[in-house]
Structure formats: C-alpha cells, structure tokens
Design a protein around this nucleic acid. Sequence first.
DNA 1: TCGGTAGTTCGTCAGGAGTCGAACGAAGGG
DNA 2: CCCTTCGTTCGACTCCTGACGAACTACCGA
Lengths: 103, 103
Amino acid sequence: MRDVHHPSREEIDLANVLHALSDPLRLEIVDILAETGEHNCSSLGNGSISKSTLSHHLKVLREAGITWTRVEGTQRLVTLRSDDLGERFPGLIESVLSATKVV
Amino acid sequence: MRDVHHPSREEIDLANVLHALSDPLRLEIVDILAETGEHNCSSLGNGSISKSTLSHHLKVLREAGITWTRVEGTQRLVTLRSDDLGERFPGLIESVLSATKVV
DNA sequence: TCGGTAGTTCGTCAGGAGTCGAACGAAGGG
DNA sequence: CCCTTCGTTCGACTCCTGACGAACTACCGA
C-alpha cells in the first residue's frame, strides 16, 4: 500500500482515458482538480458517496493516467497529470474540461 | 424501424459521448467516418464482428449524438455529426480524433 | 411475387462496473 | 502504547455492456 502504481506516459491509452472520464462523478473530480489543484481524497467526495466508492473512482482515474497520487503522511494527495496528458493527447483534456462548463 | 431516433443537439451529454468513444471498435468507426465520410453499416465492420454487434455499436454512437443515420432504400447511411458536436463541445471530437493517431 | 440484401430486434450469456459495509493497514498524536 | 484519522482492500450485490445467432422487417430487382 506504500507505493502507488501509475502507468508510464507511453502506457496511457486513449480508450481507457475516455472511459475513465465517462463517469459523471469522475468528471466532476477532474474538474475540481483542474480548477483548484491538489486535493486529498476525502475533500473530493461529494458527501453522498462512501469512501470505498470514492477510493475506487480515484483508482480508475490514476490507472488511466489522468491523475497523480503522492503519499504524504497519512494522506494521499491527488493532482491532474496535465503534463503527461497534454504531451500524449494534445488538447484533449482541455476540450473535455471546457465541455464540462457547457450547459 | 422506418424512423431512426437521434437526440437533439441540446440532449447530447458529455459523459454519454465519452462513454460511447471509450470502446476501441467505436473509436475506430468514428475515425473511419471522419477520414472517409459517409458509410453504410456493413462497410464499417472489421470483418470479425457479427452484424448484430455492429448494429449495437452504431446505435450507441447514434444515441450519444456522435453519428447521424439516414435511410436510403435498404441501406442506412452513417455520418459523423461534426456540426452539432462542434457546436456543443468545441474542439472535443477533433482532439479525440487526433489522439487516435498517436502511437 | 419471390428471393436476396441490409439492418434491427430479441433472448441469452459471460464478464465488467458501481455501490456499499466491514475489515484492514499505515501514520501520527496523546 | 493506544486510539484516531485517512485511505485501501475485500467480498457481495446489482445493473450494465458487449457478444452471438436466430428471427424479423423493409426495400429492391428479376
């Protein structure tokens, strides 16, 4: 549990990324991370979801290569992997994020 | 069967679109449509898939608002709904399509 | 009118995904 | 040391999804 697995930049797969982003809650999490930077896990829950479910969604995002998680004491601090994402799929995450702003 | 249902532009939902694009076969179909324009259904199969499965995937794309299907005689002619997609989520489909070109 | 061609729909099946509570593990503070 | 906090992991459950063949519908051509 000490080490958290992340895919390498080359391993980031488009279909996986799109699947990870196709869930409303995960989309909301990504949006929050893009707007307000690093968060710990519990501050990303919307209140109505159990921590095991939240942990599951964060794992999906991490393993798709969308987020980066670092361990700090008892917390996991999560950020967007904008750099790798932008290198691998230029403009993708930006257009998805701006699409979340659409009514 | 005569009329084919399509969502209105306003009904196109981001999470649905991303989900529809998160399948490798559907991503391939969208890519083909973007590259070479209108196709009938059978010309979109990769050979190793049954026509009922293909019909299912095309339905997913159509109901997500990604493709438009028109009836012509005994055929269904499928195109990308680039205009509506571009209006609703600017840049999204373009960045996804360019991402499919990445090694 | 009789086939043939093009797709859809139906029933079924296996596997995947989201959800939860409970149990667990790691750090840190009294 | 114990206990709390933070998060992961583990079943278990349900619902969704992709896959198929078979039956069906619609149109066209001979």
